[in-house]
Design a protein around this nucleic acid. Structure first.
Lengths: 203, 203
DNA sequence: GGTCAAGTGGACAGCGGTTTCCACTTACGA
DNA sequence: TCGTAAGTGGAAACCGCTGTCCACTTGACC
């Protein structure tokens, strides 16, 4: 790959990351090309579809999600691990509108390759079990309640990223306090939510 | 207005309500016309823009929101009033994707005519104050936390309306339990969220 | 310096949406 | 029964988007 081409490619990804973060995934490809100072051909040579660009742009953050989960599992205090994990992932979403969209709805099949999801599910189940056994997490907490938090958090969009982050933090704090074992007010039954089956029937 | 025209108009609104509820606001106008058995001209004669159709379709539900707020204020038990009000409005949103979109983002200026919003704000402030004085609502609860609940709730979209409703109910129950005075775990500061200033800079 | 494959910009095809337009039809008062 | 304004369907103008194409340019190896 020629040096100038490499440079253009990097610039495209960098610009796309910025624009997606600020304005969500529906930034036109032309805007990305213009802002990166390249033509459409260059953009589409590197990324044959918009989806492939999105995947590339957010692959780091998907990886970070996985490592956040690992950190959470490794925490000797399962309750602390669970809280910190949820807080970190929600903060990532609050700060980056494009990531939220990529994660929740737009291109779900770009994730879930080789059983990421199954792995995530079993890690979370393990963490939840441990926190319950330690008497810190309420007994009627369900795996799908984690999805519930993520979906709720995805609804939070304020004017600036800072405002979104503040709102998201407060929401998460409220929810985590409701998850504590010492706050076992009665609840409706858990709702089955499969994050990846949820929205779009593949338009 | 001619009788047949009246009938067509009603049919358009009815069909639009159905489609918006199920699939959100991005149903094409042509789909509405087809399903209502009329041509584009008929549709656009009655509703010169898509926005005007949306406004008409959801005006009832906006009105219902106001009356829910009145009911809440009229409740002798302010905590019960607040909870019931929030539950009812969130349930409306959970069951109707179009309404959520109309309410939260798409056409905010269709609401907020003649100070609806100011009235809603002051009614809520009153309700919140009373619930705090009764010692049922935690003291650090903020007006914007109500907005926080609505935004969080708007993120909940499951496969079927029933599933969405179940998820929404569970989320709201978690949040309300976190709002109780006897659950005063520490919180980050309230986030200023002006629902109507939030998303779209009027594209 | 010369060569040429790799790289490039920008025009354009195709698509799915909103809105407009116009020639035709119909309800209904006289 | 008839005249007419109100009502109508559907074609097409228009717009912004993704993705394609091709004639032109340029980096890097000889």
């Amino acid at each position: 790959m020629r040096a100038d081409a490499r440079q253009n490619r990097d610039r495209i990804v960098e610009v796309a990351r910025e624009l997606f973060a600020g304005r969500g995934l529906d930034v036109p490809m032309a805007a990305i090309a213009r802002r990166a100072g390249v033509g459409m051909a260059t953009l589409y040579r590197r990324f044959p579809t918009k989806e492939s660009l999105v995947t590339e742009v957010f692959s780091d953050q998907f990886a970070e999600c996985v490592s956040i989960l690992d950190d959470a599992l490794a925490d000797p205090d399962p309750w602390h691990g669970l809280c910190t994990g949820i807080e970190r992932i929600c903060a990532m979403h609050a700060v980056d509108r494009g990531f939220t969209a990529a994660f929740v709805s737009a291109f779900p099949q770009s994730f879930d390759i080789d059983g990421e999801r199954a792995r995530a599910d079993s890690a979370l189940t393990e963490l939840i079990d441990r926190a319950k056994r330690a008497g810190q997490l309420r007994a009627d907490f369900a795996l799908d309640d984690v999805t519930l938090v993520l979906m709720a958090n995805s609804g939070i969009i304020a004017g600036t990223p800072e405002a979104s982050l503040a709102a998201s933090r407060r929401l998460v704090a409220y929810l985590l306090s409701a998850f504590r074992a010492d706050n076992a007010h009665p609840l409706p039954p858990p709702a089955p939510l499969n994050l990846f089956d949820v929205l779009p029937k593949r338009r």
